[in-house]
Amino acid sequence: MTKKEISQRIEDTLQGTVVFSVPFPTGDDLSMLKEMSPIVIKQPYAIDYNYSYGQDSPFFAALANGRFIVSRNPKSGYTYPNPRGHDMYSGTENEWVEIVPEGKIHAFTVCHFGSEAFLPECPYILILVEFEGCDTLFLARLIGADPDGASLDWIGKKVKGRFLRNAKLKPTDIYFNLVD
């Protein structure tokens, strides 16, 4: 029976960057290494999560169907536009209630810089929306206003939600336009 040949080497070309030369003292004196400039290498890192929306899932299903549902506590009536399974005051379960996504701008900004994922979209406008009948606010994009025309006058202006035609199952499936 012939002995199986198993390689004792890692092939240099299989694992990314190949380094041909790094400066290093040729002699025995290693003291100069304390003065050496640091080595910096590139380390790529990417992940695909299988991310569950859990109890918040109906909110995204509603957006995908062009509907906007909010979380209301059946006893107190306290209402969160953000999906929230339980009320922070009573600790009891909230119910889903559909509302018309029309409201007013409570606060805004124009982002001229941002996270890497959003750089191609700069400048973009973020708003916090007040809805009638809701006790808290909702973060969204404002589309159709001039980013160079930012003004405190925008606060209080009426906005109306629009839905992406093809849902991406993100909170940006709804965005807002100014109501003339």
Binding site: Y53, D56, F113, G114, S115, E121, L126, P171
Partner: peptide
């Protein structure tokens, strides 16, 4: 879930 995807940027 709700903030970062909208344009997550602390500034």
């Amino acid at each position: 879930t709700m903030d970062y995807p909208v344009g997550g940027f602390y500034s």
